[in-house]
Design a protein around this nucleic acid. Structure first.
Length: 124
DNA sequence: AAGGTGACGCCTA
DNA sequence: GTAGGCGCCACCT
């Protein structure tokens, strides 16, 4: 498996598509599920390179960092806000941290299946 | 070719 | 509970 391959991307997408509504998981856990536990950053890359018209859709809003924080994507961008709105529209509670960070409760809404509980397109 | 960056995560003070 | 440092590796300059 090569990191920047279509294979890697489709593996990531197939996992993300299996996140249930009103649940969230982390970049790191997805990395583990696709068999590359030290490549959480590349999970973010794969989502970043998603096109809006990807079909079937990939619920990228259900992926957050290991602390439960929604990644800001840098000061001039609205990605974090759009992710918050998408999550709240699904019924997921999003809190605001002291420094204005958007936080979800991983204890309550986290979804961390073992690899055997999911299907990975490339391997199945 | 070389160095910096990033939709991250873990370990240590 | 918070902050800072380091590891990670494809991509961009």
């Amino acid at each position: 498996m090569v990191l920047d391959s279509a294979e890697f991307h489709s593996a990531v997408y197939s996992v993300v598509r299996q996140i249930p509504v009103q649940k969230v998981t982390t970049y790191g856990h997805i990395a583990k599920l696709v068999g590359m536990p030290n490549h959480s950053r590349h999970v973010g890359q794969a989502l970043k390179y998603l096109s809006p018209d990807t079909n079937p859709p990939v619920p990228w809003q259900r992926v957050v960092s290991s602390t439960g924080a929604i990644s800001s994507r840098g000061p001039g961008t609205d990605g974090a806000q759009r992710q918050r709105e998408a999550l709240e529209a699904e019924g997921v509670e999003v809190r605001i941290g002291r420094t204005g960070e958007l936080l979800v409760d991983l204890k309550e809404d986290g979804w961390f299946p073992s690899p055997s509980e999911i299907q990975i397109e490339n391997e199945g």
